[in-house]
Amino acid sequence: MVEKTKKIGWDRSEMAEKVAIDIPDGSYVNLGIGIPELVADFVPKGRELIYQTENGLLGMGAIPEKENEDRELVNAGKKCVTAIKGASYFHHADSFTMIRGGHIDVCVLGAMQVSEKGDLANWSTGAKNAIPAVGGAMDLTAGVPRILVITQHVTKKGDLKIIEECTFPLTGKQIVETIYTDLAIIDVKKDGLYVREMAPNVDSVYLQERTGVKLKFGI
């Protein structure tokens, strides 16, 4: 009998679904570029979430079929999207009035690093030859009350991303509420990082080995 390799952790879609489950009905939600975009695919039954994309659309809908693409109807990642019935378009100053003015309820962002205190770094490695690109990330962390982070637990090279202090330049300080990774869901609290749920075939030893902060389990 051939032994099957056990799948460890959640894939990107499963991670996105975990995030969606934690967003309450009726929320206005901004999704960052990359894995956060997948969250839009998983609105739990019976809930209505309104997605804002900071380039100027409230009520962002599904990805269109190729033949229905409109190059002037795009999301923050410059990918073609659609507008739902009841959507609205607006200019950038109004868009960031929604964001900085505290009108958006939840924002889901990607991360390069997250610290024990909920600091987020996601715009630059700070390397001398890097081209820094910040986009709207700092406005979102400054203005949206709930910041959820969705990210692989470690980098492709195996470098730790959840660490005591971010070594990359910060996007925002003490702003992350929960970290959703391929291995676990981790809540950031004043006295540390609390593991709320672990992915299939992940145990506390495996998780702790891949985390630069002493995690709290089973509380």
Partner: peptide, 15 residues
Amino acid sequence: ELELVPQGTLAERIR
């Protein structure tokens, strides 16, 4: 030269 400005700050500076 590059002056990097957060997107919302860029918008508000123009506004």
